[in-house]
Structures are given as structure tokens and as C-alpha cells.
């Protein structure tokens, strides 16, 4: 694979729209392509790609490969692997990058093992070593307590990039680019794990991953009630969303889909208000990208105060009502 060249981004599309992670990957990919002096390509896999192909060019891709098939509507490892394997064989990229998402975290390892190369998961930064032309991948390890830079010699090098870790390129509506159909004959006989239903658990109000303000509660909330009452009220005043650390989810106080953390949602709001959250590394991995963290916790030694910009030590039951009232007065 000595002749492999260029960066291939495995993009994500939903209902004909380019998902934000794809623009982020194209941001990370453009930097790598620049360092190598090679092209940036993107493959979009879905039942219907539509205008997303053009959007990928505007977001920085030089070439967009489009694989459309009704069998590719829902992500399924056995179908998407057929596309990924053919893409690597035919397009011969030097580097393949995906999102650390439901798709990428499932597809990247399986593709790497099939090709006999290494994948580096959940990266925060990707760089090219100028001497070896190999990619160095920086990622959190030990639950976010440390970081490691990994590299590998097998080509293609494969990496997944954490959501919101990379900045998208400035959109360039005039950018030249090529849209190329990349048909793959999906062999249904190879599908051993078949998706029979997709269930969406809609949360009312602002989506956690899109919210500019997130009000999150932890074990210290003591039960489900405050999430629907005090936290929801503060979130409403700030036009934000309610989140949670892992204990409230594990205790079934709140749905799993609002978990913020390494294995939950990774978010980067303007303001993150952490209430009754101790600030484990696992949790901080999900919110450390926030512009400003505010902590309310009764334990002055809680790790969250090491990560927060502002904090109050005390019982949230006493602090939150006057805080919400004052915030309401100030933002109106």
C-alpha cells in the first residue's frame, strides 16, 4: 500500500443532510491534506445523499464519493463494511478518518482488523509527522486523566475523531469539487446482524448536543424530581437543555439519552452548569470543551471545582431557587 495517497473522510448523512460531524472531519482532514500536500475526499453512505454531497464540497472536500442504496438507510456493520472495504481498495487512501459516533466507533475497528492495520479511536487532534509522513493521533486515555499520542505504520492509517473536537472549515460556496457516484453492490447474504427497527427517544425542547446552555445534575440531586422541576426551570430561563452525569441515568432517574460523558453525549456548550456533580474524569470527558463551567456542589473538595470557572459550595436545594430567580431577572 506504498502508493496510497490522500485523506478519505467517511461522512455521515441523515435524511439528505450533512451531519455536523462530517464538517468537523473535513476540518481535521483539510489540515492533514495540507500537511501532506494531498487531496481531501469524502464518502457519503446512505439511502439518499441528496444535497449533502454539494454541502461536503462547501465544507472542504475536493472529491465526494456517493454510495446510495436502500439497504444503507440504517447503519449496519455488515452493509457499511462492504462499502468501506471497497472504498479503501478502489480509492487507496493513505488515511481514513471517521467520527467517534454510533457509526464510526463500530465501523473503524472492524475495518482496521479486516485490513490488518491499526485504528486510533476518539482522537482530539491529528497531525502529520513531516519525516515519516505518518499520522500522529492524540487521544484521551485513563478516563480523560491523561493523553497519549499514537502512531502506526500500517497503511491506511485509520482514526476516529471525537465529536466537537475539530473545527469545521469556513464554508466556501465557490469551492470547486467533484461529485462521483461510487456504487457498491450490497450482498444481502452477508448481513448476519440485521436492523429490524430504529427507535428514536425524542426529548422535548432544545436538543442537548445543540444547546448553548446545559444545566446538568448528578448523583447529588437525590432523585428524579429535580430534573423535571428545578433543573428544567433554570434550563428554560436560559433557553438551554437538561443533562445528567452517569449516576442519575444508571439509577433510571432520567433517560440514558441525556447522559453527558465519555460514553454518553460529548457536548461543548457556551455555558455548562453542573449541579451535584462531583466531576469524575469520565464525566468531564463529555463536557470539558464547554466555554464556561459553573459548579454548584456541597463538597468543596469535589473535582468539578478544579474544572469550573465559577463555583458555589453549598446545597443546591438552597442555592438554586434564588439563583434561578436572579438569572431570570437578569436575562429578561
Amino acid at each position: 500500500m506504498a502508493d496510497n495517497k490522500g485523506i478519505l473522510v467517511v461522512g455521515e448523512v441523515a435524511e439528505g443532510k450533512l451531519l455536523p460531524i462530517t464538517a468537523e472531519l473535513l476540518g481535521a482532514g483539510k489540515k492533514l491534506a495540507g500537511e501532506l500536500g494531498e487531496a481531501l475526499s469524502c464518502i457519503l453512505i446512505s439511502d439518499r445523499v441528496g444535497d449533502a454531497a454539494k454541502a461536503a464540497i462547501v465544507a472542504g472536500a475536493d472529491k465526494v464519493y456517493v454510495t446510495e442504496d436502500a439497504q444503507l438507510k440504517d447503519y449496519c456493520n455488515d452493509t457499511y463494511m462492504q462499502v468501506a472495504e471497497k472504498a479503501v481498495a478502489d480509492l487507496a487512501p493513505r488515511i481514513v478518518i471517521m467520527g467517534q459516533t454510533s457509526i464510526g466507533r463500530d465501523l473503524a475497528p472492524r475495518l482496521a482488523f479486516r485490513l490488518g492495520v491499526s485504528a486510533t479511536m476518539d482522537c482530539l487532534e491529528l497531525d502529520i509527522d513531516p519525516a515519516s509522513k505518518l499520522m500522529n493521533c492524540t487521544r484521551p486515555v485513563y478516563g480523560g486523566n491523561a493523553r497519549a499520542i499514537f502512531t502506526s505504520e500500517g497503511i491506511p492509517q485509520i482514526a476516529t475523531v471525537r465529536v466537537k473536537a475539530a473545527s469545521p472549515n469556513a464554508p466556501d460556496a465557490g469551492k470547486a469539487g467533484e461529485i462521483i457516484p461510487f456504487p457498491v453492490a450490497i450482498d444481502a447474504g452477508k448481513v448476519k446482524a440485521k436492523v429490524i427497527e430504529t427507535v428514536k427517544e425524542e426529548i422535548a425542547g432544545v436538543k442537548l448536543e445543540d444547546a448553548a446552555v446545559v444545566v446538568a445534575g448528578g448523583r447529588g440531586m437525590g432523585g428524579p424530581e429535580p430534573f423535571g422541576k428545578e433543573l428544567a426551570e433554570l434550563a428554560k430561563v436560559l433557553k438551554g437543555a437538561v443533562g445528567a452525569s452517569r449516576p442519575p441515568c444508571d439509577n433510571k432517574w432520567v433517560p440514558d439519552s441525556i447522559q453527558v460523558g465519555l460514553t454518553g453525549k460529548i457536548i461543548a456548550p457556551e455555558l455548562y452548569i453542573a449541579i451535584g456533580i462531583s466531576g469524575s474524569s469520565q464525566h468531564m470527558s463529555g463536557c470539558s470543551g464547554s466555554k464556561c463551567i459553573v459548579a454548584i456542589n456541597k463538597d468543596p473538595e469535589a473535582n468539578i471545582f478544579k474544572e469550573a470557572r465559577f463555583g458555589v459550595v453549598g446545597d443546591w436545594k438552597v442555592i438554586l431557587p434564588p439563583f434561578t430567580a436572579k438569572v431570570k431577572e437578569l436575562v429578561q
Binding site: T120, R147, I149, F150, T151, A295, K306, G311, G314
Partner: peptide, 24 residues
């Protein structure tokens, strides 16, 4: 198959402004 180039602890700024007053 992978090699660790470097392992390190990111530096935390740790400048939390703890707001305190006579009452919570």
C-alpha cells in the same frame, strides 16, 4: 500494531472563582 509516541497529563488551569457570601 500501534506505538505510543508520548503519554502526558494535560495541564489544567484550575482557576475556579468560588463565590461566597454571608448566606447561601
Amino acid at each position: 500494531k500501534s506505538k505510543i509516541v508520548k503519554l502526558f497529563q494535560p495541564v489544567k488551569e484550575g482557576k475556579c472563582d468560588i463565590v461566597s457570601a454571608d448566606s447561601p
